[in-house]
Nucleic acid binder design. Structure first.
Lengths: 220, 220
DNA sequence: CGACTGCTTGAGAGTACTCAAGTACTGTGG
DNA sequence: CCACAGTACTTGAGTACTCTCAAGCAGTCG
C-alpha cells in the first residue's frame, strides 16, 4: 500500500516557479482559450513556444488506431509545445478557460538579452520535460493502478497543502494519462476514499486527509 | 495482431546518422568498457556527455524498492548521459565490449566552432531523447505484450535488413525496458516464432522473415 | 562432468479490462 | 421550480491478459 512514493513523479516544470510574472510578457502574445478549445494540433508546424499563465492545459497524442495518450498536464508557469522537429507530435487543449503566453521561437534572437534568456529557458524546459517523461515511464511500467491514481491525486493536491483541491481534468483524461481505463480510475478513486486517504466532495473536488499527509512527509 | 505498427517507436537518436566519424573525436576521450561494466552511476555528478562509438549501452534506473526500469539502449552514433540537473538520474552500463567517446560538457566553450556545434547537437539529442521517451510511453500504455516484444525485435532487426541480427541485451533487460516480466518476454518471443514472423537461432540471434518484412513495408 | 547462468514452459492466481447497468451532476425548456 | 436530456461518473459481473511461482532445458565455464 504505497501511496505517496510517487509524489516525485511530476518534476517541477515551472522553471522560475509557478509565477509567470517575468519580463517575457513583452515578447509574446496573450491568448485566451475556452474549455476544450484546441491550442495547437498534432502534425501542425511548430515554431511557437507556449506558457500557461492562467488555467490548465492537456497535451494529447493519438495513435492511428484511435488509441489516445495524454502526454501531460500543464499549469501556470509551465512551458509546453516544445518540439525539435518542425511539427507538433501531439495536440494541446485547454482544460478550462485558460490564458496562454505564445512566443515565436524563431523571433527570439531579435529580442536581445531577454530573448537569449528565454531561449535558454526553453531548452531547460525541454530537459525537464524529458525528466518528467522518464519518471512517468517508471510509473507506467512499475506501479499498480492504485499507486498510479493515488500518486496522481497527491501531486494535484500538493499545492493546495491540505485545503480542497480541484481536478481540472476528467476521469478519461486521467485514465489516458496513467495508462488505465476510465472504470479502473473510478474504482481506484473509490478505493482511495474507502481506505481513508482522501475525501471527495463531488467528482472533482477533494482533499488529502491530514494523517495521510503526515505519513507521506515522514516517508520522504 | 499488429506487429509492425510500432516500428516507429524508436526515433533515430543518432543525430548525424550512425556514423560517429565526426570532427569531435579531437575533443573528448575514447574509453573502453567491458560487458556489464558501469559507465556512470545513478546520483553521480553529471558534467560529461557520452557517445557510443562501438558496441551497445544500456541506461537503467532503480526505484527505492528495487524495481528496475531500463530507460533505453544506445548504439554507435547515439548520444547518452544528457542531464539537466547536476546529477545522473539513471546509470549506464556497457552491454558488450564498448567504446565510448566522453566529452566534458563545461569544457565545450573552449573549443570554438566545433564546441558550439557539439553543444547544439547535445541539445538536439536531448530533444530527440524526449521524443523517444514520449513514443515509448505510448508503447507502454497502449500496446499488448505481444505488440511490445514483436515491435522491439523489429526495431533491433531493422538495420540488418533481412540478415541475421544479434540481441545485445538479455531477456531481463528487454523485460525491464518494455515493462513486462522476463517470462512474458520469453513467451512472446516463442509466439513470434510460432506465428512465423521471425526465426531464432539460439536465444540471441534472429531474423525477420521475408514475408513479414514485406507486410510491414506495405503497412507503412 | 557438474555447477552456473540464462532462457523456456507450465499451472494457477491476480489485476485490470470489457461489457452493461445504474447513479449523479449540468444545463435547457416548460 | 421541476422535468428532461445529456454527459460524466460509479459499480457490478465476467473475462482476458499478464504475473507469480515452480520446474525443466540449454549453453558456458571451470
Amino acid at each position: 500500500m504505497t501511496f505517496c512514493t510517487l509524489t516525485r513523479d511530476r518534476a517541477p516544470t515551472a522553471i522560475a516557479g509557478r509565477t509567470p510574472q517575468d519580463p517575457f510578457d513583452a515578447i509574446g502574445a496573450h491568448l485566451r482559450f475556452d474549455a476544450g478549445e484546441e491550442i495547437y494540433a498534432q502534425d501542425e508546424d511548430a515554431d511557437l513556444l507556449y506558457r500557461v499563465l492562467v488555467g490548465s492545459v492537456r497535451r494529447t497524442r493519438l495513435l492511428e488506431d484511435g488509441r489516445r495518450q495524454v502526454g501531460g498536464f500543464y499549469f501556470p508557469g509551465d512551458f509546453f509545445g516544445l518540439e525539435i522537429g518542425g511539427q507538433h507530435r501531439s495536440s494541446a487543449e485547454a482544460l478550462d478557460t485558460a490564458q496562454v503566453l505564445v512566443i515565436q521561437r524563431s523571433a527570439l534572437k531579435y529580442h536581445g538579452e531577454v530573448g537569449v534568456r528565454l531561449e535558454r529557458m526553453s531548452w531547460l524546459a525541454t530537459g525537464l520535460e524529458l525528466q518528467r517523461a522518464q519518471d512517468h515511464m517508471m510509473l507506467l511500467t512499475r506501479k499498480s493502478a492504485f499507486e498510479r491514481v493515488s500518486g496522481f491525486l497527491f501531486e494535484i493536491a500538493a499545492p493546495a497543502n491540505g485545503a480542497w483541491a480541484h481536478l481540472a481534468m476528467s476521469r478519461q483524461d486521467i485514465a489516458d494519462y496513467l495508462g488505465l481505463t476510465i472504470e479502473t480510475v473510478s474504482r481506484m478513486v473509490s478505493q482511495v476514499q474507502a481506505e481513508g486517504l482522501m475525501v471527495f466532495d463531488g467528482a472533482r473536488r477533494f482533499r488529502v486527509m491530514q494523517h495521510t499527509r503526515r505519513a507521506c512527509l515522514a516517508a520522504a
